[in-house]
Write a protein that binds this DNA or RNA. Structure first.
Lengths: 219, 219
DNA sequence: AAAAAGATCAGACCTGAGTCTGAGGTAGTT
DNA sequence: AACTACCTCAGACTCAGGTCTGATCTTTTT
């Protein structure tokens, strides 16, 4: 038998890591050679272990999966990165793919499929969840120069407004804060909601938090 | 060697289940006899397998861990339920404990500690994360004053509503979701805003995200 | 120079959100 | 039995939020 595929696991939940490791240990052709609980740690672990494939959680404290992918590709350009995510949204796919990830897999995938994805990645093939793939294709078709994330549709000013909405501010408070009339803020709000396909400011706030425009440690 | 401890895993992420199963398979004294991906499924699996211990995810689609705990305790009163959660908040502890869970464990625990918790649960002992335990004790000690976190003032129902608000739902949508009248939801909202000293639902949503009641990986 | 995109603002309009008052039912406590 | 806390619901009311239409000004692109 040839050498096993060397894999590094990156996830800030040790339970996920140990679980995946235990699972891969039952396979002969895949060997976990390192683990990391953060993007920062991932870079040093990858530097030391030179894996073939990296399984990377998208959402982590500190450096996220996209940034971490960029970093590890710098020190190890040939490594294949598979992004794991619990999001069904396609919001993060494009930045991840752009950062050099070869596959993008939902966490509720069947583990055997995950093993297949690892083997495919090793062989240089992409594995994208069918649901995700469909969106990817749709996105690629329509507009060649599409928006990697939904907020890129927003203008700078609209982003200013959205951040303040996510803080719970009223239109008048936002107007005062940005030195505008309330009417203008309302106009921006209408545009924001329209562009993001949302119904009201509360959804906008939730969306901003979900997508990480604002963070807990940002106040 | 005595019979192994029979465990059922309940989590809507198959990856977590398979991971835990693979891990427990490496242990001789713990045997996974069943898995479920929802609270509903858990009830029937438990009915069939009569496990000693259930590892139950707190956050699931449909029936949540607390409700599922209540249900499985009905059909199998002696089973020990260990609640798994990614929350550091103590918001859910009390309902969970009240529902009959013996332990309450954070998902980032070391897997060996999890095995210990399973053995402890089997022996009828509780294992509570130290950080969580500290709060529990404080709570139990008649905490004449002080609210360690601002949500402790909220009732369970108000928390239900707040979580949905944080998802961007309207009052009517929340009413439909919880099977209530819109009037009742409005009443809860008024109480929530009053208790948390907030002005409107958008502030409530922002607050919930800031305080970590809801998380990005919760959907 | 013309076109396109963005930022600013206004008036008119409708609706959901939130408050206030009041009330019935349940469960646990004293 | 009385009390308290919670959940439930309703009517009436006010107002911020959001839409629609339409406008002026600036900057950038073509």
């Amino acid at each position: 038998m040839a050498d096993p595929i060397k894999v590094v696991l990156v996830d800030d939940h040790s339970m996920i890591r140990i679980g995946l490791k235990a699972y891969f240990d039952t396979l002969e052709d895949i060997q976990v050679v390192g683990e990391a609980s953060s993007g920062e740690e991932a870079v040093s672990v990858v530097t030391k272990t030179h894996p073939d494939v990296i399984l990377m959680d998208l959402v982590m404290n500190g450096m996220d999966g996209v940034e971490a992918t960029l970093q590890v590709k710098k020190v190890c350009p040939n490594v294949k990165v598979i992004i794991l995510t619990s999001f069904h949204e396609d919001l993060h796919i494009f930045p991840a793919i752009k950062a050099g990830a070869i596959s993008y897999i939902l966490k509720d995938v069947d583990p055997d499929d995950l093993a297949c994805a690892v083997r495919a990645a090793y062989a240089g093939e992409a594995v994208i969840n069918p649901r995700v793939a469909a969106r990817l294709v749709r996105k690629m078709q329509g507009n060649g120069e599409e928006s990697p994330n939904p907020f890129s549709e927003l203008t700078d000013r609209e982003l200013d407004v959205l951040r303040l909405v996510a803080q719970g501010m009223s239109n008048q408070e936002i107007a005062d804060s940005l030195v505008l009339s309330e009417k203008t803020v309302k106009t921006h709000m209408t545009n924001i909601l329209s562009k993001l396909h949302l119904k009201d400011r509360t959804q906008a706030a939730a969306y901003a938090w979900q997508q990480g425009i604002v963070r807990r440690d940002q106040g």
